[in-house]
């Protein structure tokens, strides 16, 4: 048994402390702000700079791997699978399919979004990497994987080299694409497939 355990104060009750005369009768501090701030200078890199300059011209530019033919957007300049530069630029349509989404119900510091809102991974037609953006102009509880969406841009005179030049994506009204290939799930067949090609096991089933 420790010494602390031999002189417990009752659980949940505030610890009774004695203050010097100079602090008696003043309002006690109960909390402190302790923000942790990290200041970076972000350098986009050559490939992402090409992409962002395209955005400022209302173009979505991906880059194709010369080996596997996959189109990455936003491009990082190299194919993560084949390790070669993605030299061919591909202009992509502004239309794609939701591959994953998250409904945000809790406000966080620095966000001016009205709640609830939906953040989604969107696979643009002709690309093989989802990009993350907002889904609007539809109630959050109606967003679904496979939903077809299109980019909504800021007015032309407000275009800048930032993904914020796309305000959000909205439903196109087309039928859902339930067979959308989800990037990273290459071994499966779209929705519900298993990363790495390992088949799900029925917990009740026989081996």
């Amino acid at each position: 048994m420790t010494a602390a355990a031999s002189t417990p104060h009752s659980e949940g009750a505030p610890l009774a402390i004695t203050l010097p005369a100079s602090l008696q009768g003043v309002e006690l501090v109960r909390s402190v702000r302790t923000p942790a701030q990290l200041d970076y200078q972000f350098t986009a890199g050559a490939a992402t700079s090409r992409f962002l300059r395209g955005i400022a011209q209302k173009k979505i530019l991906g880059e194709r791997c010369p080996v596997c033919g996959k189109v990455y957007v936003p491009p990082r300049g190299a194919c993560p699978r084949d390790g070669v530069p993605t030299s061919e630029q591909v202009e992509l349509p502004h239309v794609g399919t939701v591959t994953s989404f998250c409904v945000v119900n809790v406000a966080f510091y620095g966000s001016s979004m009205e709640l609830p809102y939906t953040s989604a991974n969107i696979l643009l037609d002709g690309s093989h990497l989802s990009l993350m953006h907002l889904i609007q102009e539809i109630p959050a509880d109606q967003v679904r994987i496979g939903m077809r969406v299109e980019a909504v841009w800021v007015p032309d005179d407000e275009l800048k080299p930032t993904l914020e030049s796309i305000k959000w994506f909205r439903p196109t009204g087309e039928p859902d694409d339930v067979n959308v290939d989800i990037p990273g799930e290459d071994h499966g067949t779209g929705l519900g497939s298993w990363v790495g090609g390992v088949a799900p096991i029925d917990p009740r089933g026989t081996h």
Partner: peptide, 11 residues
């Protein structure tokens, strides 16, 4: 190449 300030803050 494009650069921009990036501040990450946990309040």
């Amino acid at each position: 190449m494009l650069t921009a300030p990036l501040i990450i803050e946990y309040p």
